[in-house]
Design a protein around this nucleic acid. Sequence first.
DNA 1: CTGTCGAGACGTACAGCGTACGTACGGGAG
DNA 2: CTCCCGTACGTACGCTGTACGTCTCGACAG
Lengths: 210, 210
Amino acid sequence: MPPLNRPRIVAAAIDLIEREGADAVSMRRIAADLGVGVMSLYNHVPNKSALLDGVSESILSEIEFTDDPAAPWTERVRMQARAFRQIAHSHPRSTMVVVSRQLKSAAGMLPVERALSTLRGAGFGEQEAVQIFRVFIAYVIGSLLREVGVTPTFAPVHGTIRAGDVDPELFPEIGALAPHLSTCDHEAEFDFGLDLLIAAIAGRLAGRTG
Amino acid sequence: MPPLNRPRIVAAAIDLIEREGADAVSMRRIAADLGVGVMSLYNHVPNKSALLDGVSESILSEIEFTDDPAAPWTERVRMQARAFRQIAHSHPRSTMVVVSRQLKSAAGMLPVERALSTLRGAGFGEQEAVQIFRVFIAYVIGSLLREVGVTPTFAPVHGTIRAGDVDPELFPEIGALAPHLSTCDHEAEFDFGLDLLIAAIAGRLAGRTG
DNA sequence: CTGTCGAGACGTACAGCGTACGTACGGGAG
DNA sequence: CTCCCGTACGTACGCTGTACGTCTCGACAG
């Protein structure tokens, strides 16, 4: 039995979240999965909150930025957003944990640095770069939370809405569009909105310089 | 003492959430606030989850759609997004509860119906309208969660990042942009992204019809 | 008026939670 | 050898949601 340590505890937490969901995470359960007493965990992790921070940090640090400096900035922005989405997608049930924890560590700030650097390099002003950055973050997080089922509100997922379930008098559009509302190619729709946003800010930049 | 009933319980829950946060919500606490035994609540609400659904529904039903049919569709979309944001803002600490519960009731579907109707009326195709709708939902929810502090990730709020806190060698952009990252005019930034998105889809429509 | 009945308020109880605290053990330092 | 400290662990406290049984009270039948 290898010694108990923080990375092993964090890994067990991620594993548990992916197997049974974030609600199943408890210190007792993690300890049981590790074959260890509950309180032994506290020798390596100050509390549950810090453990979840560790989960977020661990997942975040998996992001691989294959950032080609020669590529146009629009492509680099697209790739960064996709890289983030892909990591979240490889740990779907941990996504809510990742995005709901503000990390001050390097793992949390590196993606921010990359994005801001790309936007500044593209020619956006200081405040402008930050605003655009925030718009992208909002879109990416909003999309991810819908994809993983945390915020299904207003975006019924597969099987939730069928044409017969809604009163076509009260909700004619929902009834008519039920086939489209009940299916979703997440990746294609993510790219759809991403392209929309990139085109919008590219137009902003073009309108100024030329 | 008025009789215990579901609306009174839901109102107490909303009040408690706004005063002490969603984590403070427990059946015992709500019962105590109402001066009532814990189990009495279960005569009017089947369980805690249904109670939170009631919270979401109650807040959602406060949305007032002042939807001028004569206004251009771009303006109507903007107004609907703002109306949603404003309601969330008037119950900030309940926002996460509202957006994380999928409601099949009329209160939950009315905003969807309005938005889809507006987009279809603007001339977008069936699948296109749904996709655009989802993009807006993602942006709005992502923005709201950041504004209310649920997902501060990658978007440090006031006071979180100061210039001296970051290693300017590792994170030069974050250091340089710290003044802008640490402040945020939420309403202006929300409108900034909203205008960006509206302009993007308007361009899409214009490019097709003429 | 009396007997009955149903609905709602309530107390108790159970399993689970995070974690503060005290204890026991095992290996390195002197 | 002894000492000491970090680690593992058990126990305990106050909290959670809620299943279950009981009690009270108003309405209605006879």
